[in-house]
Design a protein around this nucleic acid. Sequence first.
DNA 1: AAAATAGTCTATCATTTCTATATACATTAT
DNA 2: ATAATGTATATAGAAATGATAGACTATTTT
Lengths: 145, 145
Amino acid sequence: MLSKKTKYAIKALVSLGKMAGNPPVQISKIAEQEKIPKKFLEQILLDLRNAGYLYSKKGAGGGYSLNKDPKDIYLVQIMRITDGPIAMVPCASLNFYHKCEECKAEGTCGIRSVFVDVRDATLKILSETSISDIINREVDLIGEI
Amino acid sequence: MLSKKTKYAIKALVSLGKMAGNPPVQISKIAEQEKIPKKFLEQILLDLRNAGYLYSKKGAGGGYSLNKDPKDIYLVQIMRITDGPIAMVPCASLNFYHKCEECKAEGTCGIRSVFVDVRDATLKILSETSISDIINREVDLIGEI
DNA sequence: AAAATAGTCTATCATTTCTATATACATTAT
DNA sequence: ATAATGTATATAGAAATGATAGACTATTTT
């Protein structure tokens, strides 16, 4: 399961993505709109800012906005910042690899082998889907009604 | 990430799968072989037994063995018993569905839509991979060395 | 029948992770 | 200056996870 942190992060980015071009949006506004606890959102936005995805401005009239084109922010990037690994077992992780404690022979582990496949399938989607794609999906879904 | 519970469950099943046909194996033996805390493994095997995947026998000469053909035990089934949902968001789960608290319009949620795709991709692999397949993968991997 | 073996069941504890909140500080606009 | 707003760190509370304990039941062996 995704942590709430990650879900909130994606929601906030989508929300900001829809505003792309507009002046910065205040944390409190995003928190209210997306039903996210404000103080928690502060931390999350900070992480995303420090990772280069958001621009922030202090003081009156300040707030947050995207620091990249929504087309260039991929889910996999966000999830790695907020939740860490994509893989379901540490030994199958590309960016957060570490050995399973109980593992005897990683190279010939059938379980690992399956979860490498799962990772690849998941990664394919998450690394091809941008904030912009999510927004487009919503437009499409609304159109289908 | 998979819980240790699930990882242990799969390991135990694979271990028993390799013994298919042999007399029951004691918990303590599996625990030792697979480096799993014995008391924890007891609980896990009980769950698998109660779900119908294992046969057990008490008393001297007792132990556990598979109650099904290893070809007919799929990862997805085990994971649902030990970890619950496969999907990364509750609103995208087939067997453990529930609404996301903060969600306003599930039907037109772009995030959900992506994670339904992720779920389907994951499910395709997990529902096609059996204990027997894992054992075969190991044979293949050893052959490649 | 008694003793030894091995699973069953329930409770509980310890640790970690997650979620959320609090507080003090820094910067900017008016 | 003052008010608005983000920054940074600490901490608390809650939930989930991982692991252990102990008493009980069934089976086999002697």
